[in-house]
């Protein structure tokens, strides 16, 4: 066998593998996006066209914005959007800061009760915070926080912390201890080591935790309904749900409301996913 053929075979083999990889990924991408596509195209069509041919693209013959007009006339979507943004942003900030600090304490220091504290904080992953709703509601009534965004921020921070601590601690155990000890020899305080050395190294984990924390908060229906249902504090998800309830047979309006509820979280995710890519690659190149 001459020396060129194995290389040629290998190259052909890898081209084939590349095509197969693309085929699988494209197929799955279509499966993932198809339902969203169905909602969005039908929200732009007239009522008759929605029923006649659900898969037809909106065109001059069937284009109709009546659904969006109904939604924008009825709802207060801009206010809802700001509320969701405030609640999600503030909760995310506290979850990441407090979560990373606690994860560092658990993964870095050996102190009495470390394992016990880890288990205590992990309890929250296992139990949905919803099981405590009655007591939370009583607490919020007593402190006058009902129908404030602060009530939601507090609950979501508590809800997000356990998982954040669990994941971040797992990642922080992988950070080289030589680096931290070198910092200590140079006289850095434990706080500096945490904020300057460790946090930048776990950026991929932080971005991952951020995405996982953000989504359930943005999409939650339960706590906005119970703790902050007033018009001034409604979130986008609650607003959309209330709207679907009121306009159950008006498919144009429901599809338009769903499309509008998808857009903000999609934009938020796209912004974050760029951070995610940067974070992941920064973490991989050590």
């Amino acid at each position: 066998m001459n020396s060129e053929r194995p290389a040629l075979l290998l190259a052909r083999h890898s081209v084939f593998r590349g095509l197969a990889a693309h085929a699988v990924l494209i197929t799955y991408t279509i499966i993932a996006l198809f339902p969203v596509f169905v909602i969005v195209i039908n929200s732009l069509k007239s009522r008759r066209a929605i029923f006649a041919d659900p898969l037809a693209l909106p065109g001059p013959a069937n284009f109709d914005l009546v659904g969006y007009v109904t939604v924008l006339e009825q709802g207060n979507f801009f206010r809802y959007f700001l509320n969701s943004l405030t609640v999600t942003g503030a909760s995310l900030f506290f979850v990441l800061l407090f979560g990373a600090m606690a994860a560092f304490a658990l993964s870095e220091y050996r102190f009495r009760g470390n394992t016990l504290m880890g288990l205590y904080l992990a309890l929250g992953i296992m139990v949905p915070i919803r099981l405590g709703t009655v007591a939370i509601l009583q607490m919020m009534v007593a402190s006058g926080l009902v129908n404030t965004l602060l009530a939601l921020i507090l609950v979501y921070t508590a809800q997000g912390l356990p998982l954040a601590i669990f994941i971040l601690a797992e990642f922080m155990r992988g950070v080289s201890s030589d680096l931290k000890n070198a910092g200590r020899i140079d006289g850095l305080s434990e706080y500096t080591i945490f904020f300057r050395l460790v946090l930048p190294l776990v950026r991929p984990a932080l971005a991952t935790v951020a995405v996982f924390t953000l989504i359930p908060i943005w999409n939650d229906l339960w706590f906005p309904l119970i703790l902050a249902p007033s018009e001034a504090t409604k979130t986008v998800t609650l607003g959309a749900q209330v709207f679907i309830g009121q306009f159950v047979t008006n498919w144009n309006a429901v599809l338009a409301a769903l499309s509008l509820a998808i857009v903000p979280v999609l934009v938020l995710y796209l912004i974050f996913s760029r951070q995610l890519i940067r974070g992941i690659t920064a973490g991989a190149v050590k």
């Binding site: 606690a102 205590y120 929250g124 915070i129 405590g132 007591a135 939370i136 607490m139 508590a158």
Partner: peptide, 18 residues
């Protein structure tokens, strides 16, 4: 200092209600 904020928020809003 590292543990306190997480433990306080988590205890007050999750563990006690549970």
């Amino acid at each position: 200092v590292f543990l306190a904020p997480a433990v306080v928020v988590y205890t007050a809003l999750m563990i006690l209600p549970l």
